[in-house]
């Protein structure tokens, strides 16, 4: 997964989202150690202080925790991760529905299109 940033929003906020995404998708699995701030900053090509700030935010949110000597870890509470996953899914759905509305589809029509697309995709795979 590449680190991508849009140019009109704070970098730190985007880092928070991208680390969240990596945790939810299991790139950084629950309970596992995170790379060091410096390594993460180098990987994302961002300033280490900005990365530090993003991690501090995630720590406040309870998604990661630090152990004084051994670094930072992803929370081992599966329900916290699931909660985040659900809330991220909700934002994706809201965005989708807004776009569909702009195209002139009602919620039911949009839902129907999703079902159709899903069957079609499964058919293609099979």
């Amino acid at each position: 997964m590449a680190w991508d940033f849009s140019s009109d929003r704070p970098i730190y906020a985007q880092l928070v989202e991208q680390v969240q995404l990596r945790i939810v998708s299991g790139i950084y699995p629950a309970g596992n150690k995170l790379p060091s701030v410096r390594d993460l900053a180098a990987e994302a090509s961002v300033n280490p202080n900005t990365m530090q700030r993003a991690l501090a935010q995630l720590e406040t949110d309870g998604l990661i925790f630090s152990q004084r000597t051994s670094g930072r870890f992803v929370t081992d509470k599966e329900e916290t991760i699931m909660e985040l996953k659900t809330s991220l899914a909700h934002s994706v759905i809201c965005e989708f529905l807004t776009k569909m509305e702009r195209l002139g589809f009602s919620r039911e029509e949009a839902a129907e299109l999703v079902r159709q697309a899903d069957t079609k995709e499964k058919g293609e795979i099979a």
Binding site: D8, R9, P10, I11, Y12, A13, N47, T50
Partner: peptide, 9 residues
């Protein structure tokens, strides 16, 4: 940098 992005969008 983030101050500018935040306040100026």
């Amino acid at each position: 940098v983030d101050e500018i992005r935040e306040h100026e969008g």
